[in-house]
């Protein structure tokens, strides 16, 4: 890897977006070991798995509001992310980014507000996401997906659920929503989140976004990360610390590893949801 080709006067901004459970914290931690680089995770600057300092405002509730009312996304970005370049400058960063599930409904607004920013979209196979999306029992420290219906939730879990995407009021899926199992709801969540991201790949110039597949990262973490460094124009060679982070035990891995789910194990409703919502996205992602 040679010198950076990025020579802009302002810090290079980048935003990552995904369903969650796509190794984004590992990428953020690796990026944070680079020179003059900060990568926030959900607006926070974290070291390993610590709660960290909230640098950019949280967008927990705004996530759903922007999904319901896409025009509101521009106002929210202006109010909550308008100071991003200033913050990056104050930190002395040349490269500054935030990876978060709640960036998904804001990609178009962020791209417009920051015309030089780059975007990284992280994808993971549907049923692999579904099995990992929610803890079956106990407090969920990373509650990205819909929990089992009868599971007691903490206030924080319930708060995060308020901002989680669910079908728009009046839609067919909204009418059926309460009758779906949490697995069916998470199949829908995966499908809709990735549909939003894929739609953005059709809108953005090719040099402004990169896609990373979780499966690719899992089999070759260092090589996959190297492609991200190249995309962001990070200077010099990869830091040893970055390699160690990428090769260490997966960050945020659930204590109890849920068993893999296959299509054959889905009940009839889950399978119908999978066919209707996930399969069209699978074809766009993996064909």
């Amino acid at each position: 890897m040679g010198r950076s080709s990025y020579s802009g006067a302002l810090p290079r901004l980048f935003f990552g977006a995904s369903t969650g459970r796509t190794a984004t914290m590992a990428f953020a931690n690796a990026l944070n070991s680079e020179t003059d680089t900060t990568c926030l995770h959900e607006g926070k600057f974290r070291q390993e798995e610590t709660p960290g300092e909230q640098v950019l405002s949280f967008l927990t509730l705004e996530n759903r509001l922007a999904y319901e009312k896409p025009n509101a996304a521009h106002e929210i970005v202006a109010a909550k992310r308008g100071n991003t370049l200033q913050i990056a400058g104050e930190r002395g960063d040349r490269f500054f980014g935030d990876v978060a599930y709640n960036n998904v409904p804001f990609v178009a607004a962020l791209a417009k507000a920051f015309p030089d920013a780059r975007f990284v979209f992280f994808f993971r196979q549907c049923l692999d996401f579904v099995r990992s999306a929610a803890s079956e029992e106990g407090t969920d420290e990373t509650p990205v997906g819909w929990p089992p219906k009868d599971k007691p939730l903490t206030n924080v879990e319930r708060y995060i659920a308020l901002g989680r995407l669910q079908p728009r009021e009046g839609s067919d899926s909204a009418r059926l929503w309460d009758s779906w199992s949490h697995r069916a709801q998470n199949i829908w969540l995966w499908s809709e989140t990735n549909r939003l991201l894929l739609d953005q790949t059709a809108e953005l110039p090719k040099n402004r976004f990169k896609t990373i597949y979780f499966e690719e990262f899992k089999s070759a973490p260092v090589a996959t990360y190297e492609t991200l460094r190249a995309f962001l124009d990070l200077p010099g060679d990869m830091q040893q610390a970055s390699k160690e982070i990428l090769l260490a035990r997966p960050i945020n891995m659930r204590r109890e590893k849920p068993a893999a789910i296959t299509v054959a194990e889905l009940d009839s409703v889950e399978r119908a949801v999978f066919e209707e919502y996930a399969q069209p996205i699978n074809r766009r992602l993996y064909s």
Binding site: T60, N155, V156, R158, Y159, I160, L162
Partner: peptide, 11 residues
């Protein structure tokens, strides 16, 4: 507003 956070939001 101090205390208007994820922990207290639903209350």
């Amino acid at each position: 507003v101090e205390g208007w956070d994820s922990l207290n939001f639903l209350n």
